[in-house]
Amino acid sequence: MNTVVLLTCTGLGLGALYFLIASGLSLIFGLMDVLNFAHGALLSIGAYAAWWAATDGGLGFWPAVPFGVLVGTAASVLLELALIRPLYARPRDQILATVGVGLALPALITGVWGSDARPFPQPAALSGTVDLLGAAVPVNRFVLIAAALAVLLLLRLFLARTRYGLIVRAGVEDRAMVTALGIDVRRAFTLVFAIGGAAASLGGALAGLYFGSVNPSQGTGLLVFAFVVVVMGGMGSVTGAAVASVGVGLVQQFANYYTAAGLGDLSVVVLLAVLLLVKPRGLTGRLA
């Protein structure tokens, strides 16, 4: 029982992390058809910015997280404006550009801070465990889950209640028609990149908490699993991404624990292939 509770909480925490990456990825793909291979690098930027602010920057953990989010968001907006926007007429080249950024940024981080994992400062309030149904669950799991829930709620409010949310939902269905109503859909592109960058870098800062350390390839490693979540949840669907995140996180944790190590990861990746093959339309989902 203890183990089940612990695995569930850890799986949910991991799922929360996936959601923070996948929600933005899903919106970006849904609206722009850009599979953002640089999204993992954005997570790493958020993670290292937060780590730097909390250690060398001397800000302490709590201000360091928003600092990381700010830097990650700025990087994401810059990426869209400088590298993605000039390539709107060349969709494949947009993906290639993100591949290049996804390679270059972690390398730059390695150049500055080295390739070894750096311990992430754990604030006292979050370093302990909570007794839940007899299991000692690390507090940071709950922090991640709460953060993911908050992001989910904010995203749903944004999509349902704001004009730009409306534009994004319409653009996921038919981007050309949105422009044919006199709307400059490129602003929505920049906006979803900002949202995606913010969520991913928040995920990065909290991943430092979850894993206890940051390393340059962390984001890229998580990216593949985020792809699984995006496809499972339906491209462009935030709620779908949330449900799929939970599913993938739990499956991975339980399978890794109860079967051979690595089998959970393997099954999730194979699941991606199977899903795409069985339901190729999973790539053209709807917003909910």
Partner: peptide, 15 residues
């Protein structure tokens, strides 16, 4: 960092 240089060069070539 060779990968940084190559990644940057790659992005430049794509553009």
């Amino acid at each position: 960092q060779p990968l940084f240089l190559l990644g940057t060069l790659f992005v430049a070539v794509v553009h």
